[in-house]
């Protein structure tokens, strides 16, 4: 079975003043379809850089990324935007819902930037996604009217509304209380049944333990890659 994502010799260097920082120093990894993976590491380990590159928000300095059989390491910004809109979902630590939009509008946002975007179809798809996370009763609320756990569920609905192949969750439980942590992690874990690859990026070992595979990073390199 060919991997959803195969990365080889991935490097990313930043020039900061006179110094060159190697955020990624040669990473080889494969991600399978429907995998629940955690990328674990302290800050500065390169896990966020890896997530940004795999999430089409950034490009590597060197190396190859094959996504669904296509080489995607060096795409122009518009093509990367297309991948973000059609293939990738993001869940952030601080939810990043837009305060002036309703729950429904927030969830439909990724569909707005697709070609042949149709408001009625977008709203229908967003409603389905909200039903999936158990938030369909609050379509017309603003994010400020929701609790932290509810906001993160809305954010997950936004991530899945476009039927992505992969979801990156960046410290998704960092702002939540214990009760909501499990609920959100269970929800994310359940997405793999739909064939979505879920990548959890965290520095918290107890969170990473929920995943089926834990990749530990340090200094821009993969230190350990173990599957439970």
């Amino acid at each position: 079975m060919s991997a959803l994502i195969a990365i080889r010799g991935l490097r990313k260097a930043y020039v900061m003043g006179d110094e060159t920082v190697h955020a990624l120093a040669g990473v080889d990894l494969d991600f399978q379809k429907g995998e629940f993976v955690a990328i674990l590491g302290p800050s500065g380990s390169g896990k966020s850089t890896l997530m940004h590159i795999l999430g089409f928000m950034d490009t590597p300095t060197e190396g190859s990324i094959v996504f669904d059989g296509q080489e995607v390491a060096k795409l122009d910004p518009d093509l990367r935007a297309w991948y973000r809109s059609n293939r990738v979902g993001f869940v952030f630590q601080s939810f990043n819902l837009l305060p002036r939009l309703t729950v429904l509008e927030n969830v439909a946002l990724p569909l707005l930037y697709r070609e042949h975007s149709d408001p009625a179809a977008n709203a229908a798809a967003a409603t389905v996604a909200l039903e999936r996370v158990g938030m369909s009763h609050r379509l017309d609320h603003r994010p400020s009217q929701l609790s932290g756990g509810e906001r993160q569920r809305v954010a997950i609905a936004r991530a899945i509304v476009g039927s992505p192949s992969i979801i990156f969750a960046d410290e998704p439980t960092g702002n939540l209380d214990v009760k909501n942590v499990d609920r959100i992690l269970d929800l994310l874990g359940s997405l793999i049944k739909e064939g979505i690859t879920v990548v959890l990026v965290t520095h918290d070992l107890s969170v990473a333990e929920k995943a089926h595979r834990v990749i530990s990073m340090r200094s821009g390199l993969v230190q350990e890659d173990r599957t439970r």
Partner: peptide
């Protein structure tokens, strides 16, 4: 700025 970041993350192009 954050809103712009979110919109870009979910697929908005610069032209959007």
């Amino acid at each position: 700025i954050r809103e712009i970041g979110v919109r870009k993350a979910v697929g908005a192009r610069g032209s959007d």
